[in-house]
């Protein structure tokens, strides 16, 4: 039997799952709790400050990695969920899911470069 090529998308999927599992709760605490409850001053998240972090080359690189692997995670999970639901049209599902993730990857790169 031939070995599968799925490690390519699964690698991105696994990376996306790990990254979002670690970073999304932290983001939720900072943006959803710390700022509204006054634990962080609103100035800490001022536009200029956040822009400074994001626009830094390292900031852009980290953000690009975070956005793309999260997109590929969502794409692969959606594809497998469609399969779990018994819809066997894998070619079309793959095209749509990975197409959206691919487009998102390109757009993320473009927007981050233009920042």
């Amino acid at each position: 039997m031939a070995r599968s090529n799925k490690p390519i998308v699964w690698g991105l999927f696994a990376a996306g799952g790990t990254v979002t599992a670690f970073f999304v709760p932290a983001l939720m605490v900072v943006l959803g709790l710390a700022v509204p409850f006054g634990l962080l001053s609103p100035n800490d998240l001022s536009f200029d400050r956040v822009y400074g972090i994001v626009a830094h080359p390292l900031g852009r690189l980290i953000l690009f990695g975070f956005i793309t692997v999260s997109l590929w995670h969502a794409a692969h999970r959606t594809r497998t969920t469609v399969h779990d639901l018994g819809i066997s049209n894998d070619g079309i599902t793959m095209f749509i899911c990975y197409g959206v993730a691919g487009l998102g990857t390109v757009l993320a790169a473009v927007f981050l470069l233009l920042l």
Binding site: M1, R3, S4, T80, H83, D84
Partner: peptide
């Protein structure tokens, strides 16, 4: 083992239900 285990009908068919 990977010829069977890592084929399309092996681990990659599992969607971690």
């Amino acid at each position: 083992r990977e010829d069977v285990v890592a084929s399309n009908t092996g681990i990659w068919e599992c969607t971690f239900v």
